[in-house]
Write a protein that binds this DNA or RNA. Structure first.
Lengths: 141, 141
DNA sequence: CGTACATCCTCTAGTGACTAGAGGAGCAAG
DNA sequence: CTTGCTCCTCTAGTCACTAGAGGATGTACG
């Protein structure tokens, strides 16, 4: 009888919080594990890998539905990976846009903070720039 | 009798959607405007500026509560702008972190998509990298 | 003047991806 | 045996909106 992994341990090992694991089970992203006599969830190595996969995908900014597709692809490895490729490519385009937008934002914020003379709001560029859109160089996203 | 601006026009002019404007009013971010005889909201130039300020701040990634603080600072211009400065500075730090994280992610995704041989999932790096955290160079945020 | 249609109103409920809390049961150590 | 930790289920809350129902009003045209 090989002992299963508790939810607390699988949480620690995967980096996914306990309530989040239960949430993933609830939305069908993670299969319901068997229970012990005392009704505790009992996970195995496969669950741990799946959870790590999920966490990592979330960190990379994939949405739950995308992860669902990715996981189903992983489950049947003889189909073409064009779908997975498409998801990642689409995501890559998004990420590039986001970086461009955030970089513009960074310059804008730097300009704001540098411009702030630490005096009164009347002369503070932070407020000024936010109030008057014409003075702003940020036009991202 | 100067005619007010309709919610639709103030929406167009500010770039904030109509339901969002009503939502902002509901949460007290935008003051309740006077109504016409027919119970329509009647905005003025000041409201338009405030909405533009809000939209721009949201675009820059400020949270509603931060905008609330910013707006209250704008309303009383003889206090120090250190608070506004602090908010913007904190936000700038966040943005820099996010950019670094997203850039790492970009490289990761590029590596994924380039590595995909357009064959079967078994040899697809997209799945591979997501499944095995050790193969991944992304450790952001 | 009538009628079509756009715009407006309020209200409730839904979204995504969790997070928090209540209220209780099981389990391991001292 | 008791203390305290982890676990269980369930409901409700978060943020910043968004969608939709069901109805009133305003405007343009014939």
């Amino acid at each position: 009888m090989q002992q299963g992994i508790t939810i607390g341990n699988v949480s620690q090992a995967s980096g996914v919080k306990v309530p989040t694991i239960r949430y993933y089970e609830q939305i069908g992203l993670l299969p319901s594990p068997p229970r012990t006599e005392g009704n505790r969830r009992s996970y195995d190595e496969g669950d741990l890998e799946r959870l790590t996969f999920i966490r990592h995908s979330r960190e990379l900014g994939f949405e739950i539905d995308e992860i669902r597709t990715l996981l189903s692809l992983q489950d049947q490895p003889n189909v073409s990976c064009e779908d997975a490729d498409a998801i990642a490519s689409k995501h890559l385009a998004d990420v590039k846009l986001k970086i461009a937008s955030l970089t513009a934002l960074q310059h804008e914020l730097e300009r704001m903070v540098e411009g702030c003379s630490h005096g009164r709001v009347e002369t503070c560029k932070v407020i000024d720039i936010l109030a008057d859109h014409g003075k702003c160089r940020f036009h991202g996203e």
